[in-house]
Design a protein around this nucleic acid. Structure first.
Length: 875
RNA sequence: GGGCAAUUAGCUCAGCUGGUGAGAGCGCUGCCCUUACAAGGCAGAGGCCGCAGGUUCGAAUCCUGCAUUGCCCACCA
């Protein structure tokens, strides 16, 4: 105790604590009579490595979980991983490529074996990284979107939807990524602004000399698949040409001119080439006018035979060049213009999407969306912040059918089988289709055994859409499902609102019979210190694990949380982590003081007599209340800022400083109690340091772990204590201000003389034991005639004089006093005007009026006292 | 084209269900290694709260318009 005890915050102790939590089964949840609180983790991809987004997302969840647990709820945080279809397949394929192989070399079975192997080896590392973060996940129940439970759920759901006629197979225009080799749903497509060109091409009118229609296009290579040209029916320029035929250049085919309202007269030439097989608009135009569809680009991005002998086998980009060259040669290329337009790209690899006609499986969405729309509209599902509600509803309202099938191998294979014999007998798309959990022995129609399973797998989002009830055991009617579903809240970023959240709401209502969660807490994204989005290609990523080893997990968690203001992105910078680390250091050090000050013990906080005790207890209660409110409204940034403020300013800067000068043991007991309870309240955000310190200061009868402590009560407070303390603070700060202004060295003690009412004097006497040391004063006297050579200041309830004859600068002091009076006058003038305004008196709440009156009184009182001081200076 | 958000101290951001010397962290200035903490303490400087209107007794806070930035959605051939 006599030796200086180093309390520097040195991370590195966390793993051991985490191990204790796990072996102590602190994270496991099982149904009981308490109120449940559950969260299904947004499952990271098995390929994932912890990034700042994960760190933020999981820290926030962990805070909610730990908080709920401390506040007496039965919590369950269900962890797990997502198989991540395309993403994972891409990763393994890349690895194969390094070995000079590709997946077709291996064959489906062997490839899947490799992915599984890979997944087993690396898939768990993301979860280990969550442990590093301190996440209180229920590790006894880890799920994986391709484990047995999830697979059963997925197949069951698919079959049910098929039997209800919501899943169908159709030849439709879909988005296809030629690099990933699969179709994508419309929301897996991203748009990128690009500088492109607009080519103006002449399409000669069939049978008429020197007459042509000029069309503008950004993709000249698709003209090989043109089966029409469309113009707006109201466009006067094309009145005579509608219904005529044009000769498609290069191909030489005749194509009709049709009128369609979708065509903008303003854009380009007002005439659009129509390629129904490779453009969504064109597809619709084609459908409306019975135009042929000619597929000129295949799934590999290569021109098909239908593109003509000159082009078949070329890539789409080679074809573009050649088409342009040939048009130029024929004099049919009128001009080209630069054009900025948006290009659709694959959200997994960034490759340009090729819209194409393709036979795929779709899920009819309108009916599924309807109850989800209702749930969001009536507030059964709420968004925090609320402004996401509108775009979410908008998405659901305009939802299109979901292309479910993916032409990759890694994923849930469609539970769809084809009887090749029956298929051959009919043109019907449903002919020979058998949807079944297992491969049927024989065809139920023809009895044959020429049966093959569909090679495609399901969109990975289909299985994650069922996550909140999959993790609780659905379709089994488990006790957990019964007890923990719906989960309490979903914590996620906004980038997967449609891709994932919307699907969960729809599937939850459809299959689990209820919304999956009543609250969706949407946080921002973590950017670099310049506000740029972090990306590997920019090289500006910050590895949370590095931050953890450098500054400690708690520092990372705190730094992220304090910035997690609803609706805002956050910045990851060293400055932030350092500030957090300093906070941890302060806590470590405060623990030393608290321990030295002594013992804990039973304290009746309701019978405290010492002002600072009464004050800190009241402040603490107020803090807890605000902290609870903050957590209940998912304002975790506020929660963490509140704890910082209370701890640093109220607890350390004032209370601990005061206690150093207090005799007796009551305060020592109070400080122990409050500090311990403070650790409990801070624990959800900074779990490790609080557990560590708790372990050091806990007394024998108390729980082993801070996780089992009770959340403190917030109902003790002493009404006048804040005012009284503020008055004392004002006195101390006034004296310190004078000391600083006159650069009185710390070693020199001053005398202070106070002029005040008896009641004030009495309180100051009681507080004298800490006023003197904190103001560095040797004595505090009470008098009304301080004599010459003093510097002074006033608060509303007292005047204070500090004799400093040899240091005083009369002119400067006068100036200060005059300035102070002027400042006060500007405020009193405003207040007086306000209070003499009958409208204000009439309309404002009486409490506000009272408050203003008091404020004016305080100003006046202070002004009066300052004026007296000015007078004494001889002004 | 439509929608949403942001704009407050040199920097990064709180505050915004209207109530009156506008807050924090970092940075800056001055004094202090005062036996928890220099990763600290104390005291300061620094803000027409984006611009222009409006509502109100009262606006950083509500409304309208504008500007700048960012994001989302859309059938920009």
């Amino acid at each position: 105790m006599e030796n200086k005890k180093s309390a520097k915050y040195e991370p590195g102790f966390e793993d051991e604590i985490y191990k204790r939590w796990v072996t102590g089964r602190k994270f496991s949840g099982a149904p009981d009579g308490r109120e449940p609180f559950s969260i299904a983790i947004p499952p990271p991809n098995v390929t994932g490595r912890l990034h700042m987004g994960h760190a933020l997302n999981n820290t926030l969840q962990d805070i909610l979980i730990r908080c709920a647990r401390l506040r007496g709820k039965n919590v369950k945080w269900a962890p797990g991983t997502d198989h991540g279809g395309i993403a994972t397949q891409n990763v393994v394929e890349k690895q194969l490529a390094k070995e000079g192989q590709n997946r077709t070399d291996l064959g489906r079975e062997e490839f899947l074996r490799r992915v599984n192997e890979w997944q087993k080896l690396y898939g768990g590392s993301i979860l280990e990284q969550l442990e590093k973060l301190g996440c209180a996940c229920d590790w006894d129940n880890i799920h994986f979107t391709m484990d047995d439970t999830c697979s059963r759920a997925v197949t069951g759901a698919f079959i049910k939807l098929y039997e209800e006629g919501k899943i169908y197979r159709g030849n439709r225009l879909i988005n296809y990524c030629v690099r990933c080799g699969t179709s994508l749903s419309d929301i897996e497509v991203e748009y990128k602004d690009e500088k492109g060109k607009l080519w103006y091409i002449k399409y000669p009118v069939s049978g008429e000399k020197d007459k042509w229609v000029v069309v503008a296009t950004t993709r000249p290579e698709t003209m090989l698949g043109d089966t029409g040209v469309a113009v707006n029916p109201k466009d006067e320029r094309f009145k005579g040409i509608i219904g005529k035929k044009l000769v498609l250049p290069i191909a030489g085919r005749d194509i009709p001119v049709v009128a369609d309202r979708i065509v903008e007269t303003e854009f380009g030439t007002g005439a659009v080439k129509v390629t129904p097989a490779h453009d969504f608009n064109d597809f619709e135009i084609g459908a409306r006018h019975n135009l042929e569809t000619i597929k000129v680009i295949d799934e590999k991005g290569i021109m098909t035979d239908a593109a003509g002998a000159d082009f078949a086998g070329l890539t789409r980009y080679e074809a573009r060049k050649k088409v342009c060259a040939m048009l130029e040669e024929d004099g049919l290329l009128e001009k080209t213009e630069d054009l900025k337009h948006s290009v659709s790209v694959c959200y997994r690899c960034g490759e340009a999407i090729e819209p194409m006609l393709s036979l795929q499986w779709f899920l009819e969405m309108k009916e599924l969306a309807a109850p989800a729309i209702r749930a969001v509209s009536d507030g059964s599902v709420k968004f925090h912040p609320e402004h996401w509600k509108k775009p979410f509803l908008n998405f659901l309202g305009e939802i299109r059918d979901w292309c479910l099938s993916r032409q990759i191998w890694w994923g849930h294979r469609l539970p769809v089988y084809y009887c090749r014999d029956c298929q051959g007998k009919s043109e019907e798309p449903s002919a020979g289709v058998i949807v079944s959990v297992n491969k049927p022995e024989k065809c139920p129609v023809c009895g044959g055994n020429n049966i093959e399973q569909d090679p495609d797998v399901l969109d990975t989002w289909f299985s994650s859409g069922m996550w909140p009830f999959e993790v609780l055991g659905w379709p089994e009617k488990t006790r957990e499902l019964e007890y923990y579903y719906p989960t309490s809240v979903l914590v996620t970023g906004h980038e997967i609102l449609y891709l994932w959240v919307a699907r969960m709401v729809m599937m939850g209502i459809k299959f689990a019979g209820d919304i999956p969660f009543p609250d969706v807490y949407i946080h921002g994204i973590v950017r670099d210190k310049h506000g740029k989005k972090m990306s590997k290609s920019l090289g500006n990523t910050i590895d949370p694990l590095e931050v953890i080893s450098k500054y400690g997990v708690d520092s990372l968690r705190y730094a992220l949380t304090k910035q997690a203001v609803m609706g805002h992105d956050l910045l990851a910078s060293d400055e932030n982590f350092i500030a957090s680390r300093n906070f941890m250091n302060k806590i470590s050090n405060a623990a030393v003081v608290v321990q030295r000050l002594g013992k804990d013990g039973a304290v009746d906080t309701e019978k405290l007599s010492d002002l600072p005790d009464r004050w800190i207890v009241s402040e603490f209660s107020a803090f807890i209340k605000s902290a609870e409110e903050a957590v209940d409204s998912y304002d975790l940034a506020r929660y963490s800022r509140l704890m910082y403020e209370f701890f640093w300013s109220s607890f350390c800067d004032w209370y601990l400083e005061i206690l150093k000068f207090r005799q007796g043991s009551v305060s020592a007991a109070v400080v122990g109690k409050i500090f311990k309870e403070l650790l409990v309240v801070m624990h959800p955000v900074i779990p490790f340091i609080t557990e560590k310190i708790y372990g050091q200061i806990k007394t024998p009868g108390e729980p082993e772990s801070i996780m089992d402590c009770a959340w403190p009560d917030a109902d003790v407070s002493f009404p006048g204590s804040r005012d009284d303390m503020n008055a004392v603070f004002a006195l101390i700060q006034g004296v310190r201000n004078i000391r600083s202004r006159l650069t009185i060295p710390a070693s020199v003690k001053v005398k202070i003389i106070v002029e005040a009412d008896d009641s004030v004097v009495k309180k100051l006497r009681e507080a004298e034991y800490f006023i003197l040391p904190l103001a560095r004063a040797e004595s505090m006297g009470f008098a009304s005639s301080p004599g010459k050579g003093t510097v002074s200041f006033a608060t509303p309830i007292l005047k204070c004089f500090v004799p400093v004859s040899e240091l005083i600068d009369m002119d400067a002091e006068k100036e200060r006093a005059e300035l102070e009076i002027k400042k006060i006058e500007t405020h009193t003038a405003k207040l007086e005007a306000l209070l003499s305004n009958p409208n204000f008196i009439r309309s404002a709440k009486s409490s506000v009026v009272e408050q203003k009156k008091e404020l004016l009184g305080n100003f006046n009182s202070k002004k009066e006292k300052t004026a007296e001081f000015l007078k004494s200076l001889g002004a």
